[in-house]
Design a protein around this nucleic acid. Sequence first.
RNA 1: GCGGUCAUAGCUCAAUGGUAGAGCACUUCUCUGUGGAAGAAGUGACGAGGGUUCGAUUCCCUCUGAUCGCCCCA
Length: 529
Amino acid sequence: MPKKKILKKKKKSLVTKVATKKLKKKKVFKKLSFLSKLKKTKQKKKKRLNKVGSKKKTQVRKTSVRKTRVKRVPGLGQRLTRAKIILEKEKEEQKELLKKFELHILRGMQDILPEKMRYWDHVIKKLVELSESYGFKKIILPIIERRELFERATGMTTDVVEKQMYQFKDRAGNQVVLRPEFTPGAARAYIEHGMFSLPQPVKLFYFGPLFRYERPQAGRYRQFHQFGLEVIGSEKPVIDAQLILFSQTLFNNLDLKINIQVNSLGCLECRKPYRSKLVNYFKHKKRWLCPDCHRRLIKNPLRILDCQKGSCQKLIQQAPQLVDNLCDDCQDHFVKTLEYLDEANVVYSLNPYLVRGLDYYTRTVFELWPNRSQTDKETNNSFGSQSALGGGGRYDNLIEGLGGRLTPASGLAYGIERIVEELKIQEIRVPKVRPPQIFIAQIGEKASRRALKIFNELRQERFKLAENFAKDSLKAQMEIAHKLGVKLTLIIGQQEALDKTVIIRDMNTGNQEIVDQDKVAKELKKRLK
RNA sequence: GCGGUCAUAGCUCAAUGGUAGAGCACUUCUCUGUGGAAGAAGUGACGAGGGUUCGAUUCCCUCUGAUCGCCCCA
């Protein structure tokens, strides 16, 4: 409080005479407006009081009116200014509180409210069911990992590691990060727990939040959620095909239309010569490339293939393609993968320009794009084509690179937020949470106690119940029961509590029946059949 | 990190250089023990800070946030 006063004094001394006049005027204006407001509210209250019909309440209110009337006679103005001062103080205090606690969710974060949770539960339920039917085992990985893990696995030059990690020192001085992706953690766990001594390949699935510090926009958050699968310990092409088949099945189950994009990046050995070939090609045509691609030419030339700009597109179409430059082994691997896909009736598009952003990918890579050419036009193309719902690929060198044995592996991940968003865009109906069948209404304290007991008994009998014990009036409770769409309502009043009975009301017909409390469960079961 | 658009009640939207309205939602009443209907009333907002002005929610600037695009990714 004293600080405020000092500040105010300082301000006053600084402000010129004109300004003080202004301030005074301001205050006068405020006073006037405040007074008129108070008068208005008082008039309103008067009107209200005159209209109130019920006897008891008017009596109570009348006394309060008398009090105010008596008080109003001496020095109304002073009282009002006092009230005004108190109000202003309260406002200032509230403002200060708000300044102290920035009551606002952090940028890129989100609260997932019950209404949206329906969609989440639906997606995750399908994912877990399918994963388990494919023989994957669930694991939970830590949210915090050492920074070096991602530097070595994801790649030092990738944007994810370079710019987007939430990083800090823990109390022991370790450089740690909030995980920006799952695969390195899974690989770490595989090595650390000696999973190479389990029957190979090891099939794992997981779900959880990931963190990337970037600017949020359509389908992109700083804390987002992925569901992922890893198959560690086999280089067979059938594994890659199986993961892609999994994706097709999943999106079929979710009724989402998607487009599967497939490509092969080759192994480290055949990628090097291709890379220099590509650099050579673009070097001579540098001036037609966009500024971003200039950067990519040095940093990650493969990414140029992914550029969407018209000028670059022309060059890209004539550029040497990865698929033509694979070594024999990689060629063979890719062809076999595609053969498996054809055999399993998977619909996919070959996309020679598909390049995934993380360093560890080798051979097969794929992405799952939403397919909504029709709805896109209707919604004025509000969503870009860049928002992949999921993606994955082979990472044959990652485990070795982290210090494990040479262990080929393949994996994928889906963005939950993006899938949920896509469900809404494609207007897919998600099963609603089963509504309750029975509502328990109570009137009066005694009945309320009895109702709580009955609620618990029926809950143990596995009835789907609803109630609003917080409400006193039966009418209000009936309204809620109606809104919930229950079939039956149990009504317990004083009389029923004494008689140990319950009224069962059929909400469709309006018929009511009085039943002993002991026989309620039986009666309910009969009626719900 | 860069650029465009936007910011009014819990939600969807109005109006205005003289401190703000509606619909839905919520609470209460008409109806102190009975839902679907109707009527009445109530609660509740100009994102934050500064400037211009007698006066700013409105005009200008800064910040914050949202949103879309670029970069990148799920």
